[in-house]
Design a binder for these strands. Structure first.
Length: 470
DNA sequence: TTTTGAGTTGTTCGA
DNA sequence: GTCGAACAACTCAAA
């Protein structure tokens, strides 16, 4: 009886350095590559609009690559346990392999599936395909998960053994009978009415090959300026790898290995590696504190006096706050599905501190609009900005959007790129256009006074302090 | 065991 | 214009 292995693809949409795929290949039998759209299982955190767009294209590229290797991707939809069960029956598969995910719902779902299928005698194995370090592998000297980045990253890098990236298979033995597969287009992952994805198409090409291309572009032309250049909002020195990393079109091991063999300054390479470290840290936090997508990691923030306001939230979402660096970022996000890291911090700080909106509202908006929406990174970062997270920004760190704009976008290039209303405003006023003698009429006036907003935020944080003294 | 110092990304104020 | 201090509380690890 010939062996058949199912390789369940999830957030590892690549052929090279794919441990589950390589393990199945080593079995020597037929391979059934499977993707399951299990959209209801994620609950609140079902795929956002931009993520769905990315997923469609990434799957299409992956399927093309698998076809070239001889084994097309099988598309199915429904609860993962049920679908797997069906495919096992149809193919008489004896093994199921996948690379691990770390979202709480995925962890519990996968655990249940693994235990159920193992009981039935199948060979079920999961692999590390997404992280440099598994979250359960590291703890501080009191035996607890780290809560501070620097000691965490020091401990990880000291103990790290990074696997050499695995090769892309040259051929896969397909299952010998045809299998039912959904039509990817029938999943309607792409927006139609209206088709808002034009800006995404201009900006991104999902898929493994493009991810590697981005990596080498970054290493050849950008990383030499990374330490300072990473703060420039136009993105000239950023890697643009985040969505590729989220969907596993490239692995951190592949990035690490490329950095180590490239001719780059150790300081630049270390700086970029530490950004991978923050990604690791976020996953570490989410794994050990699975409630962080919804609840404050520091529980004393449960008493924080947010003032939810639909109109303010909406102005922020649409890039109409009257503060150019904030609005440019929010419009860049809306148009391209991505926002520069520094601008993410500025816009998030503005929403949470100047506007006193709950960080969860911001996190949900980012979740829906980012092509790199990632539950670990998104949750941990919003909590970091709000001050309720691990190793959080101090309460008094309130970004002033005018100063931040003048510091990191001194010529106004970035804000003019996204806010046509500011095209003719001279550099002197471009980050505070309301002070200009010829303030543009079609650009909104500030929705909050910066000094007042700052004082209100400080007062709100002071109530927490007072409440916790008791 | 206890103490001490350091810790991604800032702003304002007063000298 | 520049500079240092002040703006908490907590985690972690080294001393």
């Amino acid at each position: 009886m010939p062996k058949t292995s199912i390789v369940w693809f999830r957030q590892d949409l690549r052929l090279a350095d794919n441990p589950a795929l390589s393990a199945a290949l080593a079995e020597g039998g037929s391979i059934v590559p499977l993707f399951i759209l299990d959209d209801d299982g994620a609950g609140l955190w079902r795929l956002g609009g931009a993520s769905r767009w990315w997923l469609h294209h990434s799957l299409s590229v992956l399927n093309q690559g698998l076809n070239e290797l001889g084994a097309p991707l099988i598309f199915r939809r429904g609860p993962a346990a049920h679908v797997l069960d069906q495919v096992i029956k149809e193919t008489a598969a004896t093994s199921v392999y996948w690379n691990r995910c770390y979202e709480p719902f995925a962890v519990s779902r996968d655990k249940a599936i693994k235990s159920e299928l193992s009981t039935r005698g199948l060979d079920v194995q999961s692999f590390n395909g997404a992280l440099l370090n598994e979250p359960w592998n590291i703890q501080n000297k009191s035996g607890k998960p780290f809560r501070v980045f620097t000691p965490f990253w020091r401990a990880v890098t000291n103990s790290l053994e990074i696997r050499n990236p695995l090769p892309k298979p040259s051929r896969l033995k397909p299952y010998d009978k045809p299998l039912l597969s959904d039509d990817l287009n029938g999943w309607h992952l792409l927006p139609t009415k209206p088709d808002w994805a034009g800006g995404l198409r201009e900006t991104w090409q999902p898929g493994e090959e493009r991810a590697r291309h981005r990596l080498f572009q970054f290493i050849d032309h950008k990383i030499g300026h990374y330490a300072q250049g990473r703060d420039i909002p136009s993105g000239a020195y950023t890697s643009y790898l985040s969505p590729h990393l989220h969907w596993g079109e490239i692995s951190p091991q592949q990035i690490w290995a490329s950095l180590d063999t490239a001719d780059v300054h150790a300081s630049d390479s270390a700086k970029f590696k530490s950004e991978l470290g923050w990604r690791e840290f976020s996953h570490h936090l989410l794994f050990h504190e699975p409630t962080i997508p919804e609840g404050n990691l520091r529980r004393e923030f449960d008493a924080f006096p947010w003032v939810p306001d639909e109109a303010l939230l909406r102005a922020w979402q649409r890039g109409k706050t009257g503060y150019p660096i904030v609005d440019a970022g929010m419009r860049e996000l809306w148009h391209t599905g991505w926002m520069h890291n520094r601008v993410r911090m500025i816009t998030a700080s503005f929403l949470v501190k100047h506007l006193l909106q709950p960080w969860q509202d911001g996190a949900r908006w980012f979740w829906d609009t980012l092509v790199d929406a990632d539950l670990a990174n998104n949750s941990a970062s919003w909590q970091w900005v709000a001050g309720c997270g691990a190793d959080a920004a101090p309460y008094f760190r309130i970004f002033n959007p005018v100063l931040q704009g003048e510091k990191f976008d001194p010529d106004g290039t970035y804000v003019r790129q996204w806010i046509p209303e500011l095209e003719t405003v001279p550099k002197k006023w471009v980050h505070k256009p309301w002070t200009s003698p010829e303030a543009p009429k079609d650009y909104p006036r500030p929705i909050v006074d910066l000094a007042e907003g700052r004082q209100r935020a400080l007062a709100a944080y002071a109530t927490l302090k007072a409440a916790n003294v008791k």
